[in-house]
Design a protein around this nucleic acid. Structure first.
Lengths: 223, 223, 223, 223
DNA sequence: CATGAATGAGGTTTCATTCAT
DNA sequence: CATGAATGAAACCTCATTCAT
C-alpha cells in the first residue's frame, strides 16, 4: 500500500505519477520497468518514490490490486445496461463486449492485468500474481455456478473448468484476436491508443458474435 | 542461428548446454535469464557462448524457433495414432490430449513456448515473439480451413477467429487448468516435474473431455 | 548541545525521545544509526529533530557527553558506600563492581560509552570521541596519582600507564568477560536486558575477585 | 573467499588492490568503507571487484581471516627469538613487545584486527566478528592453561579470565597507550605511519616494562 | 514549535559483451 | 575452438538535511 504521503499529494501530481507509473509498468515486464526512468519522466527526485511507496513492488502491487480494479469497475459501471442479463448468451455477451471495449479504451490497464499470467522466478512477484489470479478466478466461478443452478449451463460441464476456459478466452484470447484484427502488436497500441478506432462498431459486433457463437454453441455444426 | 562451432561440438556437450539453456530460459523471463548463471552451471567459459551464438538473443531464438518445435514435433509423432482423426471432435481431442500430455511431460518446453505471449518493450524480442506466434497461428488456421471445407465446422464461424480461440484455450487456458488441478504454480512444476504424476489418467480424461465438450458443443445446454 | 526547544518539551516527550535515541545509537555505529528510523519510532516529525538539535551529531554528542555521564553518575551515587574506600584494593573493587553492575543494569549506556574507542574517518566524530576519551582518562589518572602519594600504588608504576591499563580492563575487558560468562553477544543483551539476571551474585563476586586479584597482585604466583 | 580470478591476477595488481583494500577498510568502519572509492583509487572497473570477490563482505572477510593473520604470523616469525620464552614474564614480554612492534610497524593491520571488537547490528558482520574473536580467545586460553600447569601462573586465577584480561590489555589497551605516548589518534598514524618512529627504543622498553610489571606483579606495592 | 514532502548524492550489485591470449 | 578478465551502464534503495506551511 502507498504511504499516506502519496494520498496527501496534490491530486494533479498524484495522477500524473500514477499515469506515468501505469505507462512504465504496462510497457515492460516488472523487472524491466525502471523507477529511474519513471522519476525522470515525472520530474521528481528518486527519493520521492520512496516517500510514497515502500519500494518498487509496493508501487506495482498498488497498481495491480487497487488502481486497475478501481478503473475497471468504473468502466463496468458506466457500461452497465439497465437490465442485467439473465441468459447465458446475454451474460457472456456483456462480458465479452465489456472486455473488448475496456481493452480498446484502456489498453494499458488491460495489459497490466494480463501480466499476472506471466510466469516469473521472483517469489514475491509470484505471490502477488497468484493472489490476483485467484481473486479473478473466484469471481468467475461464482457467477458460473449461479448459471448452472438456473439451468443456463449444460449440466455436464464443470463450472470451474468452464471458468478457466472462459477466462483464457476473455483474457489472452481476446487480446490476441483484437490485436490480430487491428494488425498491430500490443506495444504499438499502448503507444498509439487511437489505433483502436480502426475497429468500427460493425467489425466489433461481428467479432463479438463470432466468439460468442463458439463459446455458447460450440464449434460443431448444429445437428 | 547458432554458428557452425556449436554444431561441431561433441554431442554430449552440445546437449548439456542446450538442456541448461532450456532450464535457464524457462524459469525466468528473457531479460532475467542470465548467461553468467548459464555458463557457471554448464562449466564452460563465458566467451564460449559467443563462439556458439551471436548473442543472448541468438541463443534464445534458436531455442524458440528450432529446438522447441523440433521436440514438440517429436512428441506429436510419437503420440500420433495410426489413423489420423477425421472428425472435428477427433481432431480436437487429439490436439487437446497432445497439448496436455506434452505440457506434463515437458513443462519447460511448454513454458518456453508460452513466453511468446508476454509483452515486452525490447524491439528485437517483440519481433521474435511475433514471428513465432504468427507461425503457430498460421498452422491452426490452415487446419481449420480444411475442417470447414469438410463440413466439420459450423459455417457461421470464421476459421481465423476459431483458430485464435482454440489457440488461447490450448495455450494459456490448458496451462492454468492443469496447474489448477495439480494445485501448484508453474515454477514448482518446472523444478519438480514429478508432480505431474499426481494427475492420473482418469482425471486427465475427465479434464480433456470437459474442455472438449465446451469447445465442440458449446456452453449452452442442448435444446 | 540541544536547542532550548528540546528542554521546553513536556518531560514525558523529551524522555521518550531520549530513550529511543539511546536505543537507536546503542545498537549501531554512528553512521548506521538512522534519524529516519528514530522519528518513525518516536512518532514525531522528521523536522522536529532539527528543532531540538543542530543535526545528527549534535544529538549524538549530547547523549555521549551529557546524558550518559549524568546517568552513570546517578548510578555511582546510588551505589556509593557509606565510607569511601581508602585502600587500593577497596578502591579498585568498588570501581570494578560498579563497572560490572552498571553494565548489567544499563547495557545501552555502557555500549554507547564504549563506542568512543571505535575508529572512524569522520573528522567531527573523531574529535568527539577524542574529547570523551580524554575526559575519562584524566579522571582515572587523577585518582591514581592520589593513590601513589598515599603509598597505595607501587612506586615503579607510571600512574598514567596504570590508568590506561585499568581503563582498558574496565572498558572493553570487562564487557567481553561478562558477555563471555553470559554466553551472548552485546546486541542480544541490548535487546533482551533480562539476560543479565543469568549472572547471579555468587558468580559476579567470583568474577570481580578474579579480575581484582590479577590487577592488584598480578599474574605471577606469590614468591 | 576470493574467487580464483583474484589469485590469477598479476602479482603486482593483486597486491595493489590488496593494499588499497586494507587502506580503505582500516580507515573506516565496515559500512563506511566504499567499494566505489576503492575501485576509483585502484583504477579498475567497478565490476572487477565482483570478478574477484563474491561481494563486499567476502573481500572484508578475506582481509580479516586470511590476509591479516598471514601478515601477523610473518611478523611473529621474523621476530621470534632463538629460544622461546619459558617463564611467564618472558612469555608475556614477548607477547607485549611483539604486539607493540606489530602495531607500530603495521598500524593498518592492527586497526583492522581491532575492528572485530566493535559492536554492529549487521548480522553477517557480527557472525564474522564473533568467529575471529573466538579464534583469538581460544589461542590465548590454551597458552595460559599451559602456564598454569607449569606453575607459572598463580593457581587462584582462572586462565580463561586471565586470557580475557590480557587480551583486552594487549588489544585496545596497548593501542591506546601507544597512541597516547605518540600523542596522535589512530587515523593520523594510519595516514602517516612514520610517526611511529617518534617512539624510540628506550621509550618503548619503558612502556613495555611498565605494562609487564602491572600484569605480572600487580598494582599493589610489594609487601 | 510541528510538520512532512522534496531532494540528490551515494551505496552495492548484476549483467551482456568484448578481446587478448 | 577455449578462456576468463575487464568493462561500465543501469538498477534499487537509504539517508541527513532543508524549507515552506
Amino acid at each position: 500500500m502507498p504511504k499516506s504521503t502519496f494520498f496527501n499529494l496534490p491530486q494533479a501530481k498524484r495522477e500524473r505519477i500514477t499515469e506515468l507509473a501505469i505507462e512504465e509498468f504496462s510497457e515492460r515486464p516488472y523487472h524491466r520497468a525502471s523507477l529511474t526512468r519513471l522519476v525522470a519522466r515525472a520530474g521528481i527526485a528518486k527519493g520521492s518514490v520512496y516517500q510514497y511507496f515502500d519500494d518498487k513492488l509496493d508501487l506495482y502491487r498498488w497498481l495491480l490490486t487497487e488502481e486497475v480494479p478501481r478503473r475497471k469497475l468504473a468502466h463496468l459501471r458506466a457500461e452497465a445496461e439497465a437490465a442485467p442479463p439473465t441468459s447465458l448468451r446475454g451474460f457472456l455477451r456483456q462480458a465479452v463486449l465489456s472486455g473488448v471495449r475496456f481493452m480498446l479504451a484502456n489498453p494499458r490497464l488491460s495489459q497490466l492485468a494480463a501480466a499476472v499470467t506471466m510466469p516469473t522466478d521472483d517469489p514475491e512477484l509470484r505471490a502477488l500474481y497468484a493472489e490476483v489470479l485467484a481473486q479473478g478466478h473466484a469471481g468467475f466461478t461464482t457467477m458460473l455456478r449461479g448459471m448452472v443452478q438456473a439451468g443456463q449451463l449444460r449440466d455436464d460441464v464443470d463450472p470451474e473448468l468452464a471458468a478457466r476456459v472462459i477466462a483464457s478466452v476473455l483474457g489472452i484470447g481476446l487480446r490476441d484476436i483484437v490485436l490480430g484484427q487491428l494488425g498491430v502488436d500490443m506495444l504499438a497500441l499502448l503507444r498509439e491508443p487511437s489505433m483502436a478506432e480502426r475497429l468500427d462498431d460493425a467489425a466489433l459486433e461481428r467479432l463479438v458474435d463470432g466468439v460468442l457463437t463458439i463459446l455458447v454453441d460450440g464449434l460443431a455444426p448444429p445437428p
